[in-house]
Design a protein around this nucleic acid. Structure first.
Lengths: 198, 198, 198, 198
DNA sequence: GATGAATGAGTTTTCATTCAT
DNA sequence: CATGAATGAAAACTCATTCAT
């Protein structure tokens, strides 16, 4: 293994470890209270290493956000190639959503994204992209439902996807603060009602 | 007069001015970046005066949150005594929600509440209370629908109120980041679908 | 003594002490290595107090420069109202210059001003003003020489004042690095040669 | 090969490139703000290479100073072997001085040397040597004037050379901050006055 | 020779909080 | 009631230097 690749490998490792640490630290402390010091220490490095990779805290946050939202969405891609029934795909989708939502730090992180986005155009832009991709992905899944004659040909997929996202976001919000809020079963039931599947 | 009894002084002018300033400053800068200096100056006072009324920034934030959420809910109380048709009450409610949501700083502030709540038990407790009261209020409205035979007697009001809140929250979230998201009409249509009014 | 004046008095005192500390600290360490920490400590305060009075290090430096250059020039004002012979006024002026130049920290500070001025437009602007006032003052003194028929009516005072300043600056520069450089007597002799007094 | 013998390696390409970079970078940013990173990059290398050649930033600066001042003086050596009239040699010297002074970065660098010298004995020592050599060189030129009977045999060359250097330094200082300061012609006129040539 | 990852001490700046007036 | 001077802890960011490759 030559010099170059050894250096590159080390660089990659520290980059990755900083990203991983960010998930934990930004989730746990929020953007403002997550210090670079803590972030770096959590990754097993010192501040200096952080600035070797990123030129500022905001820069890093943006990059981390891109990374995190991209990974988040990839979890849903298998739905597009699934061979099971449409109803089953819907259920699976909800389950994946549920699993991801319960990952430590994801919900706090998501609120952080929202909270910063309303004041920072760069972050807002990323949220916007994230939502659009979200809608598109759901539209693609719903399209399969139409092709399988499970959904009415009249159903406006754009609007429907937006409704579904609203219901899921609303569910997460509510469950963060109210124990014994409504259950996943009820989410599924509501989504099926929106899809006129029942 | 000790700090605790300060809660009783809500009629004070300085108290009110600080609350108003908080709505603006916390909304615009977020909790962490809103300095006491700025807060006090916005209210027309200096730091010293702030500490005359509140023992810490967190304390103040908590009291402000109580104040703000309480004022927020009061906007919906007229719905309970309204004499119009049930459908009209629903429409009115959605309109009030829409108007409040578009008030400057409300959405940023709400995200701030969420973002802090997931990490701070005191704030979380308040969010929890807020949501419960929200549910209760909607239940009371829906009860009128049942009495007017507009809603099925079988409809589980607890679950239904939760669904409605989710839809409204989800709508706000989405509209904060995606222009041309779904419209108020669609919200109303979806809520009516949930209520099986159509 | 009322509250206001007590507060104002304290404020004045800390401002003054910070200015005094600056003369010592900037002179001793130079702008870059003079930390706010040290500056404040030298004045008997902490960093926070510094930022109560000045919004940044650069801002402070500019204000300090104004202050210092203004005080510097005031030392020469008595020359304008002196009643002695023109030759004596010239000698006195050179002596004042000599005394000020040998004040601890003045020369280092002056080099600092020069060194920063070439890279910072704000500082350069101040240096430019300083020099122009310098020229003007010398012109006024020389004018007295003309009125007393000690100087040729043909002498161009603008050019002459510039030459004198150059000789004095050059003297200071040289004496900072070379011991046994040329003496004050020689400066006086050279200036008299420029003035065609000999 | 130890660090000390590095002085002998002045023919190295990397050495030369670092020296050239230093002229630019120290001139542009000043000693404190010129980072090794930038210095190395400007020379086409990386930090590591820098430390291969020099043991510290200060060390490098000292060596750079030696190098630069030595190159500076070499520009005047042709004057010693010139065959033209004494007056013409004087004019040539002033012109060389003028040309060098207007080289980008030279004046800022010179102020940097001064500014550091008053606080650093090593740097001061080099400035002292520089000035002494300067005086010596001028004395040698003036000696030619004496031999050609252009200068009075009574003229004290040591003192005269000091005066000339002061005038030149003063000219540079003044022209750095005041546009429309006195002109080269006036410098020449003043120097001739000092030499009693007029 | 040359690279660049990693460090850690140091720098400017902000800000919640206290307290004498 | 109200002020504002003073504090000190903590934050983002910089940079000379080292060293494994």
């Amino acid at each position: 293994m030559d010099k170059v690749s050894k250096h590159a490998q080390k660089s990659n490792e520290s980059y990755q470890r900083l990203m991983d640490a960010a998930f934990k630290v930004f989730g746990q402390y929020g953007y403002e209270k997550a210090s670079i010091d803590l972030l770096a220490k959590e990754a097993g490095y010192t501040k200096g290493t952080f600035y070797l990779h990123f030129k500022s805290k905001e820069d890093f946050f943006l990059e981390f956000m891109d990374h995190k939202l991209s990974v988040y969405k990839q979890n849903f891609l298998p739905l597009l190639n699934s061979n099971t029934t449409f109803e089953s795909i819907i259920s699976q989708g909800i389950n994946i959503f549920y699993k991801l939502s319960n990952e430590d730090n994801w919900i706090p992180l998501f609120f952080e994204f929202c909270s910063i986005a309303v004041r920072n155009e760069n972050v807002k832009e990323r949220m916007s992209i994230y939502y659009r991709e979200w809608f598109k992905l759901i539209c693609m899944v719903l399209e399969k439902g139409k092709q399988a004659n499970k959904l009415s040909a009249n159903l406006d997929l754009d609007i429907t996807s937006r409704k579904i996202v609203a219901v899921l976001d609303g569910y997460n919000l509510q469950n963060s603060f109210v124990s014994n809020g409504y259950s996943l079963d009820e989410v599924e039931q509501l989504i099926k009602q929106i899809l006129e599947l029942d």
